[in-house]
Design a protein around this nucleic acid. Structure first.
Length: 804
RNA sequence: GGGCCUGUAGUCUAGCGGCUAUGACAUUUCCUUGACGUGGAAAAGGUCGCAGGUUCGAAUCCUGCCAGGCCCACCA
């Protein structure tokens, strides 16, 4: 193997990436009896390129996975892409410059699948480049036949369990995407709006003032609510209000939900301005009047305003009210409106036919499941709990979209009976195929369901999607519940919660034993990155400039769950570490040409010292890695490598290595053996964080003495040579060395300038001092070293007198 | 309005009851030492957000406040 003079990530990273793939270093062994470590890898959405947030959180999960692999586990780390959602539709529409709704369903799905085939390999390449140690041959796409089958099977199973029902009900609707959406897909948006105070006539002769931001819903007003204790309006209760521009009269009722402080204190109940209105319809048993079309325009029930879009209707209604002298005042108001998180459109409430999973009765069960899993960091569980406690509606799993996993159902044309396919028929597209059996009523004619499943209905099955790929193998049964779910904190309420729901319903079990939640990558000022702010950092550019190891090194700088500002200088720090590790290894092996891989009879005190320190680092690193505290591991190993090993130990042993004749027999061999062992341990402990440079060092130097063909499947270091007394003696040594360096620095002379007489006063035995004297003399360039034993309270009290 | 997290040197951060409060980047000075100048040695830099309390002892625990972030609710 050629050994590079200078380490270049540009050369080495593609080389080792190709090596790992060719040698299948990260392959899952499906026939093995070894303990399995299974990972429910987050499938990224195919929507362009990997972003820095991906690089951040995927690196963090990869640290843990690589550590577990080195601990000897049979690692199951599949890779998937999530591409049945709106994000994928948007991307394809953009790439192909067309609109999905203008195209036939079959045609559009075909186009999506073809386009995905083209773009997915490039997309996945980014994950490979950053060094994610997945077994990429275990791959799924959430729109492929395999996933469609499992997703549809889940639907059928839950239907049979009585958990799935279809209902015509008012639900959150996006008029832009023209589909129902879920509670979790809504987002708050601050908007400037007008707070309109309007007056309705009543049957008691007086007018009642109503404040609203949605005057256009006036034709849908079904009641007027006032607080029962509101003195201003008590007399109206039981009377009727006359709806302007119509002959309708509605009840004025008492409702404690009406906030006396807000607006005029009078609520006009429209169907539907928000989900509160839905609740009130049920509570007061009122017939709704629906005036909205699916595209956000008003229908014929809106009378003179029919045909207008909501925004235009608002102006028209205000104008008309003004003309009738019914406007008291209009206040500008800034308030939060619910919008669809994908397109920023104000959501509406529309009554449509939808499929739901009934699960509100299982809230306690979900909370219980949450407690059965280990959360890292622990406090992330609270977000999960809060979300469950705040759930109000069943899970709507149907979407009115072309592209997605079809809902496997037909309706009998004659009797409307619902028919589901057999498991063996899956995956099925009910728009293209028909049921095999005729209906109970004798009819053979069916209408296929044209709705598709919510993307989360499929991605909540990622453990099953991945594990089913291993069907029939020996290790398959050992994969569930999975060992680890890694993800970021933004989708605890989506992906994580939904997966727990499915697992609970299907498997009666938690889906994973451990959950690790990553934070976000922020811009240098601690702000969220977004395309609109223009503060987005491209991981591809950073990798090209500094290498993947440097980027991973940065990602290892933040505690799990913490957000981390991205600063390019941190990559420079990583780059320096990588160079330093390369140079130190280079130096070590220049002097290990005649290395014999056997433990020498006698080690010098300073060898024992560095080994003792190393033992402590190994112990700590292992403990911290077990607790997902890779940032601590990285920090400790880095510190040890740089300061204890490179700055001190290497300097100390140079004399023994260069001038073996001047020193006792075996002194050089002791240094060599120690150098080798310590460096190998450092390389191994850093391997999960910086996989490329450690592989380069391992392959260039260690490979000829070690058995494993890659450092990444070598065993995690474990040995214990911790020795308190040796540690203390070595610390005295380093303390003296620092004093000498300080003295030379103050005199502004080179470290190489000889010290005429070095006097060390310390609390240690004469023999102990004898064991470090030669090394000390050499590294400080002293001509004479004198020791004076003192009795002081502190064990490592040192006084150094340097005569230059 | 509720919940959770975070406030440590110019910047990012470690420490989360007891050593002189850690390290990196930036700053200053020195060292062309035979792995590395992408290096090494040293210096300066801090009311540990603010105010109380608990304790022999608080950056660390408790209470309140202030600031920032995230999630949720309200938004007629």
């Amino acid at each position: 193997m050629d050994i590079q003079q200078k380490y270049s990530p540009k050369v080495s990273e593609p080389k080792w990436l190709a090596f790992w793939e060719k040698e299948r270093i990260y392959a899952f062994d499906s026939d093995s009896d070894k303990e399995v470590y299974s990972v429910d890898t987050p499938p990224p959405t195919v929507s362009g390129k990997m972003h820095i947030g991906h690089a951040f959180s995927f690196s963090q999960q990869d640290f843990i996975v690589r550590y577990q692999r080195m601990r000897g586990k049979n690692v199951f780390y599949p890779f998937g892409t999530d591409d049945n959602g709106l994000a994928t539709i948007r991307l394809i529409e953009k790439l192909k410059n067309m609109k999905g709704v203008d195209m036939g369903r079959k045609e559009f799905v075909r186009l999506c699948l073809d386009t995905l085939k083209e773009i997915t390999p490039d997309f996945v390449q980014d994950w490979k480049s950053i060094g994610i140690s997945s077994d990429f041959s275990i791959y799924y796409s959430t729109i492929d036949g395999h996933c469609q089958r499992i997703s549809q099977k889940s639907f059928i199973d839950l239907y049979k369990q009585g958990r799935i029902y279809r209902k015509r009900a008012p639900f959150i609707w996006c008029p832009e995407c023209q589909t129902a959406i879920a509670q979790v897909e809504m987002r708050d948006k601050e908007q400037e709006s007008q707070f309109v105070y309007m007056e309705f006539d009543t049957t008691i002769g007086e007018r009642i003032p109503i404040a609203t931001t949605r005057p256009e819903l006036l034709p849908a007003c079904v009641a007027v609510h006032v607080h029962p204790d509101d003195k201003r309006y008590k007399r109206f209760i039981g009377a009727k209000a006359k709806i302007p521009f119509s002959k309708r009269e509605v009840e004025i009722v008492a409702n404690k939900d009406a906030d006396m402080e807000f607006g005029s204190g009078v609520v006009y109940h429209c169907t539907y301005g928000d989900m509160n209105d839905v609740e009130w319809i049920e509570r007061f048993k009122i017939e709704p009047i629906e005036i909205l079309n699916k595209n956000g325009t008003l229908n014929e029930k809106a009378g003179q305003f029919a045909g207008l879009h909501v925004k235009k209707a608002r102006k028209a209604v205000i104008e008309a009210l003004k003309n009738e002298g019914r406007i008291q005042k209009i206040e500008p108001i800034k308030h939060a409106v619910n919008v669809h998180e994908r397109c920023d459109t104000d959501i509406e409430i529309l009554t449509t036919d939808q499929w739901f999973i009934r699960y509100l009765d299982l809230k306690d069960e979900f909370l219980k499941q949450g407690k059965k899993m280990n959360w890292f960091p622990e406090h992330m569980r609270v977000r999960y709990d809060n979300w469950i406690l705040g759930l109000k509606w069943d899970w709507n799993i149907s979407r009115q979209r072309h592209f997605g996993v079809p809902i496997p159902a037909w309706y009998c044309k004659k009797c409307h009976e619902i028919h589901l396919p057999e498991e063996s028929e899956l995956p099925v597209d009910p728009m293209e195929e028909s049921p095999r059996k005729q209906c109970k009523c004798g009819s053979k004619e069916f209408i296929g369901e044209k709705d598709t499943l919510d993307t989360w209905a499929t991605s909540s099955l990622t453990p099953q999607l991945a594990i089913e790929l291993m069907k029939g193998t020996k290790a398959c049964k050992k994969l569930f519940p999975m060992s680890l779910r890694p993800q970021a904190h933004d989708i605890i309420t989506f992906w994580l919660f939904n997966t727990v729901v499915k697992s609970c319903l299907h498997e009666k079990s938690v889906p994973w034993h451990n959950i690790m939640i990553s934070g976000f990558a922020l811009d240098p000022h601690g702000k969220k990155m977004s395309k609109s702010k223009g503060n987005v950092v491209s991981p591809q550019e950073m990798i090209a400039k500094y290498g993947a190891d440097a980027l991973r090194f940065w990602a290892a700088g933040s505690k799990l769950g913490d957000d981390l500002p991205f600063m390019e200088k941190d990559l420079v720090t990583g780059q320096k570490f990588i160079t330093k590790l390369w140079n130190a290894s280079n130096f070590a092996f220049i002097n290990l040409k005649d290395y014999k891989n056997e433990k020498p009879e006698k080690l010098e005190a300073m060898d024992l010292w560095v080994l003792s320190k190393l033992s402590g680092i190994i112990k700590d690193s292992t403990e911290t890695f077990e607790k997902y505290e890779y940032a601590k591991t990285k920090m400790e190993v880095e510190n040890f490598f740089w300061h204890t090993f490179a700055d001190n130990y290497l300097e100390i042993v140079k004399d023994r290595i260069y001038n073996p004749g001047r020193r006792g027999k075996g002194a050089r061999e002791a240094a060599q053996w120690t150098l080798y062992g310590v460096l190998l341990s450092i390389v191994k402990m850093m391997a999960p964080i910086t996989p490329y440079i450690t592989e380069e060092v391992y392959q260039s130097y260690f490979k000829k003495y070690e058995n494993e063909k890659s450092v990444h499947i070598s065993s995690w270091p474990s040995f214990d040579m911790e020795n308190e007394r040796i540690g203390a003696i070595g610390d005295i040594f380093v303390s003296v060395l620092n004093d000498v360096r300080k003295a030379k620095s103050e005199k502004k002379v080179s470290m190489k300038v000889p010290v005429k007489r070095l006097l060390v006063k310390a609390k240690m035995a004469k023999e102990e001092f004898g064991s470090i004297k030669d090394d000390l003399k050499a590294v400080t360039w002293s001509e004479e070293v004198v020791f004076e034993q003192v009795q002081e309270s502190s064990e490592i009290s040192v006084e150094t007198v340097v005569n230059l």
